[in-house]
Design a binder for these strands. Structure first.
Ligand SMILES: NC(=O)c1ccc[n+]([C@@H]2O[C@H](COP(=O)([O-])OP(=O)(O)OC[C@H]3O[C@@H](n4cnc5c(N)ncnc54)[C@H](O)[C@@H]3O)[C@@H](O)[C@H]2O)c1
Ligand SMILES: NC(=O)c1ccc[n+]([C@@H]2O[C@H](COP(=O)([O-])OP(=O)(O)OC[C@H]3O[C@@H](n4cnc5c(N)ncnc54)[C@H](O)[C@@H]3O)[C@@H](O)[C@H]2O)c1
Lengths: 211, 211
DNA sequence: TCCGGATTGTGAATTATTTCACATTCATTT
DNA sequence: AAATGAATGTGAAATAATTCACAATCCGGA
């Protein structure tokens, strides 16, 4: 029985924050940072930060701190963004086009290759440099352009159908913004992004506090 | 020492999911549902569901299940959406306008009253039924229209300034999409929405699985 | 080369969350 | 009115995540 190290979900979700802070430090020409400093800038405790990193290895220098460039590279590897990921977005509506045009993804090695939509009125147009294509072309496009991730920004009732299509096309990761659970085979990973949760969490806390 | 019941964060974030499933059941004219059924449709265990609800009271009927309409109303109250919340959005860019035009919020008693932007080229226009106003008008608008929540969809470097303005205007809740922490007084609640986290979580899992 | 100061890495303790399992309660039937 | 069956509500147990606290280690200076 070799014991598998299981990494807390919450640890993974903090890594992008550390990454961003390290990028800032790097731009500020800071080359060494302590866990105290990095943690404070990330909004967590320093023991939290050190424990998080310890799941993946030893990246610091005792008595000194962390080499910004080195840690940046390590986190890149952990998050899998040392390689490029290509995405397609299904649903060229309000949210889909906003995501497609977002410049922040490129900084993380994420490239939106195309948008797909069922509406002929949207097909053929360009969203910035990104083409909007008919849904029928999705499978071929994914295979030709070596796409790994599909983003779902269609209405809820269309989400399962789109997910099925993405699975058949061979996509192994789905980022789903539609407010429904979708069924996929075990070898496909679904990441849900439910924006209403954040707003209702705020609403809950506000109404508690105002009571 | 009266012991305060503390409600897990995760419980709050599941309530919107239960709410949505109950809405569906309600539309399907289902009037009674068991914790097994409701939990399965929400993607959680039934004991999880019952424990979550138990933090707020006893809403079910032993031996029978939950009255859909009654539970819906209770969750509405817990989430604070039995009353209307009015929001303003600062940053009428890609994401801000997508949010402003999203019809899903209205179903939860959330009304986007106006967008604000620093760019004179965007001011004066309408996004659907929602006006885009100059930043200078924010304070007056918030006070005149009894707004409670501010949404930040401006670039990261402008976020703190916008937050300061929102705090001065009297907003008590801020929903922040800019990828930076912001400093606010204790009586203001900030909910962070970091979309990159979701995508990088997916990237991490994908690259682990492919290794 | 050794010493002092600093900061990491990590077991252990604590705290938080989820799951278990069953006593309790309710609706229905006889 | 009592018996039956079903599903909730909830302490207790099990897991999971965070914080503590300090031994281990490294850097730089003497
Ligand atoms: N806009 C937001 O701010 C927001 C916020 C939270 C959640 N969401 C969710 O994101 C999704 C998209 O929202 P939106 O506001 O962009 O909607 P939208 O109506 O603007 O866009 C949806 C697009 O999907 C296309 N479409 C419909 N069925 C399709 C299908 N079967 N295959 C391919 N394309 C199809 C439509 O033609 C349209 O272009 C929805 O599920 C919504 O609930 C949106
Ligand atoms: N678009 C996305 O999909 C996406 C995804 C994740 C995060 N975000 C974050 O959301 C924010 C907005 O992104 P976007 O893509 O909509 O950008 P955008 O450039 O399309 O829009 C930003 C808007 O803010 C306005 N603005 C700039 N400074 C301002 C100020 N001081 N006061 C008021 N308005 C100001 C600009 O005029 C512009 O209209 C950014 O912080 C971005 O990192 C966006």
């Amino acid at each position: 029985m070799t014991d598998v190290v299981v990494i807390p979900r919450a640890t993974i979700s903090r890594l992008p924050v550390y990454f961003r802070v390290l990028m800032e430090l790097s731009h500020m020409e800071v080359s060494l940072v302590s866990s105290d400093e990095l943690a404070a800038r990330s909004g967590v405790s320093s023991s939290q930060l050190r424990k998080d990193l310890s799941y993946f290895g030893e990246f610091g220098i005792r008595g000194a701190g962390y080499d910004v460039g080195f840690l940046l590279q390590k986190i890149r590897e952990i998050l899998g963004i040392h390689r490029e990921w290509r995405l397609v977005i299904a649903g060229a509506g309000k949210l889909g086009t906003a995501l497609a045009r977002y410049s922040g993804f490129a900084q993380h090695g994420l490239e939106v290759a195309a948008l797909f939509d069922i509406d002929p009125g949207k097909q053929g147009k360009m969203t910035g440099k990104i083409p909007v294509l008919p849904m029928e072309d999705l499978t071929g496009f994914v295979q030709e352009h070596d796409i790994q991730i599909g983003v779902i920004t269609v209405p809820a009732q269309a989400a399962q159908g789109v997910a099925d299509l993405m699975v058949r096309a061979g996509l192994k990761g789905i980022w789903n913004f539609a407010p429904v659970r979708i069924e996929v085979p075990d070898d496909v990973i679904v990441q849900y992004e439910d924006l209403v949760v954040g707003l209702l969490t705020l609403s809950h806390h506000l109404s508690r506090r105002m009571r």
